[in-house]
């Protein structure tokens, strides 16, 4: 935040995408866990419902992903995701040090939010991993599992379907972990609810 003024960081299209994506990912995680642990837990969905929910949410998240990608290509929002490797380890270390010690000592954030820098380095690279690595892998493997007949039968003596499903499961799980951390880190605003409010109104205060 520059000089305490309000910043409009989350345009409407981004907030709509974020909302759809958030609900879709939550549905995918819940139905995905229900499928993975199909014979355990009364709190989970039954298998047939889980398949239906997972398929539907998968399609919604895939379509909304393209909204995100095109939005970033067509608007200025894409610049926040550009990789700058120079001095990256230093920047990441500074941010980690802030989270594990600096913030408890009342230090200022080493990378305060501004119009030029919407994310701190850790946030930025976590989002790049989630959006440009995890999600594409999930979408490709998800589509393959939706049409399993297109999967290569055997990859280096391994079953193609099994390999696809295992990759889908691992990346899905990592996305779940990302979500937990994402939700927690978002609570570090002052007051804690500030960032949640921002992603709804679009204004960072």
């Amino acid at each position: 935040m520059e000089n305490g003024k309000k910043l409009y960081l989350y345009p409407l299209w981004l907030r709509i995408w974020h909302g759809i994506n958030a609900l879709g990912i939550l549905a995918l995680i819940f139905s995905g866990i229900s499928l993975h642990y199909s014979d355990r837990g009364i709190l989970l969905l039954d298998f047939q419902s889980a398949v239906a929910v997972h398929n539907l949410a998968g399609v919604i998240v895939t379509v909304s992903y393209f909204l995100f990608v095109f939005g970033n290509i067509l608007t200025k929002n894409g610049k926040y995701y550009r990789v700058k490797t120079k001095g990256l380890p230093n920047r990441l270390t500074k941010q980690i040090q802030y989270y594990i010690s600096g913030m408890f000592k009342g230090e200022e954030s080493p990378f305060p939010i501004s119009e030029k820098r919407k994310f701190n380095p850790l946030q930025k690279y976590a989002y790049i991993f989630a959006m440009y690595l995890f999600l594409p892998i999930l979408i490709v493997t998800g589509i393959a599992l939706f049409f399993p007949e297109i999967i290569i039968e055997q990859v280096f003596q391994l079953s193609g379907i099994m390999l696809t499903a295992v990759i889908h499961g691992i990346i899905g799980f990592l996305t779940f972990v990302f979500l937990l951390v994402h939700l927690y880190v978002a609570s570090m605003g002052k007051p804690p609810g500030k960032n949640y409010k921002s992603i709804i109104t679009g204004w960072h205060t």
Partner: peptide, 13 residues
């Protein structure tokens, strides 16, 4: 070579 080891949704195996 049981190249077609099975996978069914419902467990990672």
């Amino acid at each position: 070579d049981f190249s077609n080891e099975y996978y069914v949704i419902g467990a990672s195996r």
